[in-house]
């Protein structure tokens, strides 16, 4: 599986889109969730679910609903691995925002994935402090050993996506990398095969 390109911008909720057939152009269906045989989107925050309770708890911390936007998007990404247009629309409805507004926020923050990524999302820090310690060689080693063709692409087996990231805030442990939610410090090109062998 190669990573699909970010889907065409669209701000309609899935129900609306399904009702108006003309939006289901083949070009459109080739990307993202719509590509999987128009399976209906399963909401993350169904009434009574643990995720909904978590969101309600988050809402109680802030004087506005909008403030729960970043945490809500994190929950969606945690559940689905990425934040789809439908996910944005669901969050928008719950927080009384427009999908366009939510998309504006999602696109500002680099950690929300706007398209599916490999099972192991590998971020290698290459900002100056790590760069002087040889971070670029670590990137090359990851690209080579994961069989990812280039930065941002997912390996053919769907296991890995490798990107360069700006400063992970662990400069004294160059080169730090992040694999999904986990940090690995002091990575050198030689350690890369061993690190990868420990991943499923």
């Amino acid at each position: 599986m190669t990573a699909p390109k970010p889907s065409t911008p669209e701000y309609f909720r899935s129900e609306i889109r399904r009702e108006s057939g003309d939006l289901h152009s083949p070009a459109h269906a080739a990307h993202g969730e719509a590509g999987h045989g128009h399976e209906p989107y399963t909401p993350v925050f169904t009434a009574g679910s643990a995720r909904r309770k978590e969101l309600d708890d988050i809402l109680s911390r802030y004087p506005t609903k909008m403030a729960a936007l970043l945490p809500a998007l994190w929950i969606v990404q945690h559940e689905r691995g990425w934040v789809s247009e439908d996910g944005m629309a669901e969050v928008a409805e719950l927080l009384e925002l427009t999908p366009a507004y939510v998309k504006g926020v999602v696109t500002f923050y680099t950690m929300y994935h706007q398209h599916p990524v490999g099972r192991h999302f590998i971020q290698v820090c290459t900002t100056s402090p790590c760069n002087v310690c040889g971070a670029e060689d670590v990137v090359d080693a990851f690209l080579k050993h994961t069989n990812c063709q280039e930065l941002g692409l997912t390996s053919p087996d769907g296991k890995y996506t490798v990107i360069e990231v700006e400063c992970l805030g662990a400069c004294g442990f160059a080169t730090p990398i992040m694999i999904n939610e986990d940090f690995v410090e002091s990575v050198t090109p030689e350690k890369v095969p061993e690190i990868l062998s420990e991943l499923e």
Partner: peptide, 25 residues
């Protein structure tokens, strides 16, 4: 705790506040 989502600029105090409010930073 309010978790950011990857934006250096959110370390600027007013951007940080925007980010807490659920806005672009």
């Amino acid at each position: 705790v309010h978790r950011g989502a990857g934006a250096y600029i959110c370390g600027e105090e007013t951007a940080l506040m925007n980010s807490i409010e659920g806005r672009r930073g």
